[in-house]
């Protein structure tokens, strides 16, 4: 296995959704979902796309997995163009989307996997064993012959993953794989993803959970409003805020306009606002905390200030800084 081999290459990729014109459609406007993004993914890598909802993550993953045709730019997956060689490419990739939907609820787990094996033309002599192996892998052997409607949330998610592996894909796309899962199941899912990666599979995933990106990804791209704001390892991302400091202010009340005022201060690159029980917390990414603290305190005059702390930046702050429009 050549770890430097580029498996996915994206250059200046753009997706504009046309205004709806179909029968009984509801009209609408053109929407720019992905705006000239470029990146490469190497064999065996876990590559993450991190960004808020509507940032263009899913659109990107769909373009790479042959489900959407890009408006312009180029994409190559395993040396093929997903929009032209889709049928050939599809047998070598797979896509798993998070959430509970996407399985036949009236069929058993095994029947689901059987059906999809047939869709992938898995050689008949191998099919039975492969389905069993996958059930073992995701720990569903005991409930393989129960209908999916009776599965728990976590079982469904594991079956999803098994479904994504029936064709032994070289590249696996995971769209929000832990969306809505409870922490325990999400942890199991991440463990499984790491295991697959160790076995040499190239994985591209999207997430909007910071810690997930930090824990799983070899490299990640931060995307916001269809534009990539930064690419690198989680470590190097943190590097982007190495020279910054964090001011964390807790007060009884911090208004939206006060947040904007904070953001406008010199040397402030991002501000996030969070409501806690009965109080608010602002987290500011700044160049020089010492000189800013008095200004921030005076800005909040009249509010009940609970604490002002200085902190070390985290990946989340790096993310915040990158997606911040300032």
């Amino acid at each position: 296995m050549n770890e430097n081999e580029i498996v996915i290459s994206v250059k200046d990729l753009v997706k504009v959704y046309p205004a709806a014109t179909h029968l009984l459609g509801d009209g609408g406007k053109e929407k720019l979902a992905v705006d000239r993004i470029s990146f490469d993914i190497h064999r065996g890598e876990i590559f993450g796309m991190l960004g808020p909802n509507g940032a263009g993550k899913t659109t990107t993953i769909k373009m790479l997995s042959t489900l959407l045709i890009p408006t312009s730019g180029t994409a190559t997956v395993l040396g093929m163009d997903p929009s032209k060689d889709s049928m050939k490419l599809r047998s070598r990739i797979n896509l798993v989307s998070g959430g509970e939907r996407g399985l036949y609820f009236r069929l058993t787990g095994r029947q689901n996997l059987d059906f999809f094996s047939d869709m992938y033309q898995v050689p008949r002599e191998k099919k039975k064993k492969r389905v069993q192996d996958l059930l073992d892998l995701v720990g569903l052997t005991d409930s393989a012959d129960i209908r999916v409607e009776n599965y728990s949330r976590g079982m469904k998610q594991r079956l999803h993953l098994a479904r994504g592996l029936v064709n032994e894909p070289e590249v696996l796309f995971l769209d929000e794989p832990t969306l809505g899962l409870d922490p325990e199941i999400a942890r199991e899912t991440r463990a499984l993803i790491k295991k697959l990666s160790r076995e040499g599979m190239t994985i591209m995933l999207t997430t909007h959970y910071m810690f997930e990106a930090d824990e799983l990804c070899d490299r990640l791209a931060i995307i916001s409003n269809g534009v990539i704001k930064g690419i690198g390892s989680p470590y190097s991302m943190k590097d982007a805020v190495r020279n910054d400091t964090i001011i964390e202010v807790e007060a009884g009340e911090i208004t939206q306009s006060q947040k904007e005022q904070m953001k406008a201060l010199p040397g402030v690159s991002a501000v996030s606002l969070e409501s806690l029980e009965g109080r608010m917390m602002a987290r500011m990414v700044v160049m020089d905390a010492a000189t800013l603290i008095p200004t921030v305190a005076s800005l909040l005059e009249g509010q009940r200030i609970i604490s002002i702390k200085v902190d070390q930046p985290t990946l989340e702050d790096a993310y915040l800084k990158m997606v911040s429009d300032k």
Binding site: E100, R101, F105, R106, E149, R153
Partner: peptide, 10 residues
């Protein structure tokens, strides 16, 4: 949650 899906599965 599963209630919703009872709807979908129908």
């Amino acid at each position: 949650m599963s209630r919703n899906y009872l709807g979908v599965k129908a």
